[in-house]
Computed example of a mutant assay.
Amino acid sequence: MRRDVWPATLAPVRQLLDHGLDLDPVTVLVGENGAGKSTLVEAVALAFGMGPEGGSTNSGHSTRPSESSLWEHLALHREPGAPKSGFFLRAETMHGFFTYLEQHPGHRPEPVFHERSHGESFLDFVIDRSEWPGLWVLDEPESALSFQGCLALIGLLQSIVDDGLGQVLLSTHSPVLAAFPGATIHEVGEWGLRRSAWADLDLVRQQRSFLASPERYLRHLDDERGGP
């Protein structure tokens, strides 16, 4: 892949192409908007054979292709005997994915996801597929989930990993999800990918600082707008 063409112009993408990335039982990517987190997890999901807008391997669900070609330049290496199935969950496209499931029923009844709230349906899907072995790729799932929902998701995914049924790759802005027990955390930015401890993450320090004194941040916004 040419390094002067997006997405290879992003440092994390170049690092992935040049040096690869070992995925641990739970791998978490954190970083600012535009740093390349979603581009990376999307490429891994597509290279694994999952639908670009969410779904299982070989689902084929797509409404408006917008993914990069990065996945075409990745070679995935599995351990002998590792499952070849997987699930890709993107919170912003779950509505369309659930409609796809309704229109293409499988060999068993699906939960009626559209009759649940966004967060409830997201968790219902994980529960429904939790006994299927494979790779779980999740792109910023906190946008569908409350604080308690994030904790519930960690519990569900932890059970899948502990039972030897799956491996997790997760991108997030949530310090709650980034605290996934035993996860390997990579901070994504202009430096590329760097392994970090949870307490050292910018998103953890910033949210701690905000919660300790929100008025300092909000006053700064008023100053930028020229308010009183």
Rank of each mutant, 00 (worst) to 15 (best):
M1K: 13
R2Q: 14
D4W: 13
D4V: 11
A8I: 11
P12N: 01
R14S: 15
R14T: 15
R14L: 15
L16V: 15
L16F: 14
L17R: 15
G20T: 14
D24V: 13
V26P: 01
V26F: 05
V26E: 10
T27K: 14
L29Q: 11
E32G: 05
G34R: 10
G34D: 06
S38G: 09
T39Y: 00
T39W: 01
T39L: 01
L40P: 05
V41I: 02
V41C: 00
V41G: 04
E42T: 08
A45R: 03
A47D: 05
S56Q: 07
N58P: 00
S62G: 00
S68Y: 13
S69Q: 09
L70P: 07
A75R: 08
H77E: 11
H77K: 06
E79L: 13
P80C: 01
S85C: 01
G86E: 02
G86C: 00
L89R: 07
R90G: 03
E92H: 04
M94K: 06
H95W: 12
F98V: 01
T99H: 13
T99L: 15
Y100F: 15
R108P: 00
R108F: 02
R108I: 01
E110Q: 12
P111Y: 06
F113Y: 15
E115P: 04
S117W: 04
F122N: 02
L123Q: 01
F125P: 01
V126G: 01
R129S: 03
R129P: 03
E131S: 09
P133N: 02
L135A: 04
L138C: 08
P141Y: 10
E142P: 14
L145V: 01
A152V: 01
A152R: 02
L153W: 09
L153I: 11
G155Q: 03
S159K: 11
D163G: 06
G166Y: 05
V168M: 09
L169Y: 11
L169P: 06
L169M: 06
L170V: 04
T172S: 10
S174A: 08
S174G: 04
P175R: 13
V176H: 10
V176A: 12
V176G: 08
L177Q: 08
H186T: 12
H186I: 06
V188R: 06
G189C: 08
E190L: 10
L193W: 09
L193M: 13
R194C: 11
W198E: 09
A199Y: 08
L201H: 11
L201Q: 13
R205H: 13
R208L: 15
L211Q: 15
A212I: 05
A212S: 08
P214V: 11
Y217N: 07
L218P: 03
H220T: 07
E224D: 09
E224S: 06
R225W: 13
G226M: 00
